[in-house]
């Protein structure tokens, strides 16, 4: 069987469906599969911010959900909260609040964050309990499984899985390397 286990690739290409920051024609697209309750994702959060700042318009950052509900009981609902915020155009505001408050991901906290970023609260509450966003989160998860996501966070740089350390220096170097490659 022709399965390249060594460099898994993104099975679901980045599209308009995704939550993205940065230009669509950026030299590098960095995709993160993450879980809002995962401490390693929490650690990677400022790393990604720093890389975005360094790379500017040459980077597009995409976040997809990969909640491991089995070990993180709030991860699924937190992911749905981000999707419900996205329905009101505020995905990234919610995304940031979730990673900045990983200890507070109960529904009552999510409700507070929704108020804080100015979401229409009745709609948010209804969306949070609706199947639509749970399904959307699940779709992300399935795409991640097919792509070789084996834990969180997992990064893909221009659709190829990044297997290195998730610290600033190595990840930034890999992103810059991909940008250089693009230029050649």
């Amino acid at each position: 069987m022709k399965l390249d286990q060594h460099a898994p690739r993104l099975a679901v290409p980045v599209s308009a469906r995704d939550h993205a920051q940065g230009p669509a024609d950026a030299a590098v697209t960095l995709v993160e599969y993450g879980d809002y309750e995962c401490p390693y994702c929490g650690k990677a959060y400022p790393v990604v911010k720093a890389i975005q700042q360094r790379m500017g318009d040459s980077l597009r950052f995409v976040f997809r959900n990969f909640p491991i509900n089995t070990v993180h009981e709030h991860a699924g609902v937190a992911a749905q909260a981000a999707e419900a915020a996205a329905a009101q155009g505020k995905f990234w505001e919610m995304h940031d609040l979730l990673y900045e408050n990983q200890d507070g991901l109960a529904e009552v906290d999510l409700h507070q964050y929704a108020l804080k970023i100015g979401l229409e609260i009745y709609r948010f509450d209804a969306d949070l309990s609706s199947e639509i966003f749970a399904r959307r989160v699940r779709e992300d998860f399935r795409g991640g499984l097919r792509s070789g996501v084996n834990g969180t966070p997992t990064f893909f740089i221009n659709a190829v899985r990044y297997n290195g350390e998730k610290e600033l220096d190595p990840l930034l170097a890999a992103v810059q390397g991909a940008a250089e490659e693009k230029k050649e």
Binding site: C38, I68, T70, V71, F141, R142, L145, N150, G151
Partner: peptide, 16 residues
């Protein structure tokens, strides 16, 4: 270790 736990990942994949 929890976050990269293979069995937890498969547990999450049972539906698939």
């Amino acid at each position: 270790p929890v976050c990269g736990d293979q069995m937890a990942l498969y547990n999450e994949s049972l539906e698939e």
